[in-house]
């Protein structure tokens, strides 16, 4: 397999809150290859966004800090990069779009001004050329009357339009990696589909690798090649979209998929995973999902489960698939994890 364009190895990002250290990201490893779309799924507070901000080295510090791990982009280790080196990468080689299109643009500057700024930070072009290129980009992301919109202010545009502007901005320097942090969460469904289309085209035409952070399994099914499921700061399962959606292994992933409304079932009430996410803490022992898991047994409370790997690249962090631990073998019928 070729070298991944972006790889995160054993990332630990901690936050200091009320004199307590919270491991928001606790040993996450992710790989992203050229032209690939990888989804990171998990509920609010599981560390998806912090992972993406860590890659960009934009974790607000204080209170956040990357304490351990390696982020490699095209062979360079970003954890050791200086602020100046990071600036050259941000927006240029790795771009990011955020969840909140309503507040992600500076309200006091025109769309054009902000696009031109993004272009001129990394490219030596005249203001006029940058403006023409901005209009071109706006056209490309499907904004009607682009030549007028370029002189308008963010508050004059709808949420969907603003997200398109964000995408145009992210595309402006032809990045190799696009990190999209819940890009469609704040938008209504029809707009969602358009924004996803736009990202898919970008991926297909320019071979841009996309790290798509979302809690929406529907979006994952539509967009991604591979999925990483996170829970409470840790990766609990990883595999191809097909595998994960057809045959989830981890009880959490199973729960997530069961809680999707299904047109074929006759059940009146939608399933939901009991309990809520617990706040990750440093001195915690045992599987973090154990309190909410219907299959939990003694080992789950006493030891931290390891990430078990299958040859195909499928991974799961659960004792149910550990031959030594799982005497009960509740759901496991394949023992091929090592």
């Amino acid at each position: 397999m070729p070298e991944p364009i972006l790889s995160v190895q054993d990332l630990h990002t901690h936050f200091l809150t009320d004199n307590k250290e919270v491991p928001a990201v606790d040993g996450v490893s992710i790989e992203l290859h050229k032209g690939e779309v990888v989804g990171i799924v998990g509920e609010s507070g599981c560390g998806k966004s912090v992972t993406s901000l860590s890659i960009m080295q934009l974790v607000p510090n204080p209170p956040g800090k990357i304490v351990k791990g390696e982020i490699k982009f095209k062979g360079k280790n970003l954890t050791y990069a200086t602020e100046k080196q990071m600036r050259k990468i941000r927006g240029n080689e790795i771009s990011m779009i955020f969840q909140e299109p309503m507040t992600s643009l500076d309200p006091l500057f025109t769309i054009g001004n902000q696009l031109i700024e993004a272009i001129r930070i990394h490219q030596k072009v005249s203001k006029k050329d940058a403006k023409n290129y901005s209009i071109e980009l706006l056209n490309l992301v499907g904004i009607p009357r682009a030549s007028e919109v370029v002189d308008e202010f963010p508050h004059q545009l709808s949420g969907g339009m603003r997200q398109r502007v964000m995408i145009a901005m992210a595309m402006s320097c032809d990045p190799e990696v696009l990190i999209a942090d819940e890009p469609t969460t704040a938008l209504d469904v029809t707009i969602q589909a358009q924004i996803l289309d736009l990202m898919r085209n970008l991926n297909k035409e320019k071979q841009t690798s996309i790290l798509l952070i979302t809690h929406d399994l529907g979006v994952v099914a539509e967009m991604c090649d591979r999925v990483v499921v996170m829970y409470s700061g840790k990766v609990v399962e990883e595999g191809s979209v097909r595998e994960i959606l057809k045959d989830p292994k981890h009880p959490y992933t199973k729960g997530l998929i069961r809680s999707l409304p299904n047109i074929r079932t006759t059940e009146q009430k939608l399933y939901s995973i009991p309990g809520t996410v617990m706040r990750p803490s440093l001195d915690q022992v045992g599987c973090r999902f154990a309190p909410r898991c219907e299959h939990s047994f003694d080992s789950c409370w006493e030891e931290n489960p390891k990430l078990l790997k299958q040859e195909s690249g499928r991974q799961v962090r659960c004792f149910l698939y550990d031959e030594e631990k799982s005497e009960r073998g509740v759901t496991s019928n394949d023992k091929s994890y090592t």
């Binding site: 960009m56 934009l58 607000p60 990071m86 600036r87 050259k88 990468i89 941000r90 927006g91 240029n92 771009s95 990011m96 955020f98 909140e100 507040t103 992600s104 643009l105 500076d106 309200p107 700024e117 993004a118 930070i121 990394h122 964000m166 901005m169």
Partner: peptide, 14 residues
């Protein structure tokens, strides 16, 4: 702390 300042930083500005 606002989102748009984060966006500007993500653009790579100094």
């Amino acid at each position: 702390k606002s989102d748009y300042v984060r966006t500007i930083k993500a653009k790579g500005s100094g």
